[in-house]
Simulated assay, not measured.
Amino acid sequence: MSIEQLLQNEAVKEFGTGVLIGFTLGYTFKHLFKFFVILLGLYLIGLIYLSNKGIVQVDWQSLQSWVNYLFQGFKNFMDSIKAPIASLGGFTVGFALGMKF
C-alpha cells in the first residue's frame, strides 16, 4: 500500500482529524484551567485576608460547595465534548499531547 493510498483511507483521515481537534482542545483547556485556578486562588486569598481582618464573614461550607460545583461543571463539559468525536482514539492521543505542551 502506497502512502497516497494510505492518506486516502477514511479511517486515517478521521484519526488525523481527531488528533488535531484533541490537541487543540487539550492545549486550550490546559491554559484556561491554569488561568481559572490562578483566579480562584487569588479570590480565596482575598477572602482569607478580609476574613482575618474582620471585614467580611465567610461561610466556608457554602464556598466549598460552590467550588465543587464549578469543578463538577468543568468535568461534565469535558465529558460532553469527548462524546461526539468520531475518532475517539485520535482525539485522546491529541488531547494528551495538547495537555503536555
Rank of each mutant, 00 (worst) to 15 (best):
F15Q: 04
F15H: 08
F15D: 01
G16N: 09
T17Y: 15
G18K: 02
G18Q: 04
V19A: 04
V19Q: 00
V19M: 05
V19N: 00
L20G: 07
L20A: 14
I21G: 00
G22K: 02
G22D: 03
T24Q: 12
L25S: 03
G26M: 03
F29D: 09
F29S: 10
K30E: 02
H31F: 15
L32V: 08
L32P: 02
F33A: 14
K34I: 13
F35I: 12
F35K: 13
F35T: 11
F35N: 06
I38P: 00
I38F: 09
L40A: 11
L40G: 09
G41E: 01
G41F: 02
L42R: 07
I45G: 06
I45V: 15
I45F: 15
G46C: 01
L47T: 04
I48S: 10
Y49P: 00
L50F: 10
N52R: 12
K53L: 14
G54C: 08
V56R: 05
Q57D: 11
V58N: 03
V58L: 01
D59R: 07
W60C: 04
Q61P: 00
Q61S: 10
Q61G: 13
S62R: 12
Q64P: 00
S65L: 08
W66K: 11
V67F: 05
V67H: 02
V67S: 01
V67N: 01
N68S: 11
L70V: 15
L70M: 12
Q72L: 11
G73P: 05
F77N: 01
F77T: 10
M78G: 10
M78S: 15
D79Q: 12
S80D: 13
S80P: 04
I81F: 09
I81N: 03
K82R: 14
K82Y: 03
P84T: 06
I85W: 07
A86R: 14
A86M: 11
A86Y: 12
S87Y: 03
L88P: 02
G89W: 06
G90K: 06
F91H: 01
T92D: 03
T92S: 07
T92H: 05
A96H: 05
L97K: 01
L97F: 08
